[in-house]
Amino acid sequence: MKGMKFLRYLLIGTVFGITLAKAEVISWFRIYEMFKFQSFHMYGVIGSAVVVGIIVIQLIKRKKLKSIDGERIIVAPKQFSWARYIIGGSIFGLGWAMTGACPGPMFILLGNGVGVILVVIAAAVLGTYVYGKIRHKLPH
C-alpha cells in the first residue's frame, strides 16, 4: 500500500526532528555560537555526523550495498564548479546566520510552536522561486 510506504519517511523524519531538537541544533543561539567559534557543540554534531557518514558511505561502496528496491545505493554526484557553490553557498550562509535555521530546522521549529517561522519558510519558498526565474542569468 502506498500510504504504508510513506509512513517510513514520516518515521525517519520524526527521529531526525527529535534529534535536532534535543541536541539544540534548532536553537538560533547555537548557530550564532557556532559562527563565533564559542563552543564545540555544533562542530561536534556536524563533525561526528560526517565521520560516521563517511564510514557508512565507504561501507556501502565497498560492500556494493543495495537499496530496498535492489538498486545500487549512491549519493547523487554534484557537478563541480566554483561560482555556484561559493556564491550560492555564501548567500545561504548569510540567511542561515540571520534566521538561525536551515531548511530542516525550519520545520522542526514550526513543530516547536515558533509560529512566525512560517514566514521564514514562505520567504524561503519565494527565494527558491526567484532563483528558478533568474538562474539562467547567474554564473554557475
Binding site: 556536524i46 555526523a49 560526517v50 557518514g53 563517511i54 557508512v56 558511505i57 549519493v75 554534484k78 555556484r84 557553490y85 556564491i87 550560492g88 553557498g89 555564501s90 548567500i91 545561504f92 550562509g93 548569510l94 540567511g95 542561515w96 540571520m98 534566521t99 535555521a101 536551515c102 531548511p103 530542516g104 525550519m106 514566514v119 521564514v120 519558510i121 514562505a122 520567504a123 524561503a124 519558498v125 519565494l126 527565494g127 527558491t128 522561486y129 526567484v130 532563483y131 528558478g132 538562474r135 547567474l138
Partner: peptide, 27 residues
C-alpha cells in the same frame, strides 16, 4: 523575511543545504 529569502535563494543556487551538502555530500 530577507533572511528566509536568502536561505531559499542560496540553497537552490548552491544545489543543496546543510543536509544535502554538509552531511550527504561531505560523507
Amino acid at each position: 523575511v530577507v533572511g528566509g529569502f536568502l536561505v531559499g535563494f542560496g540553497t537552490r543556487y548552491a544545489g543543496g543545504c546543510t543536509s544535502g551538502h554538509a552531511i550527504s555530500g561531505l560523507s
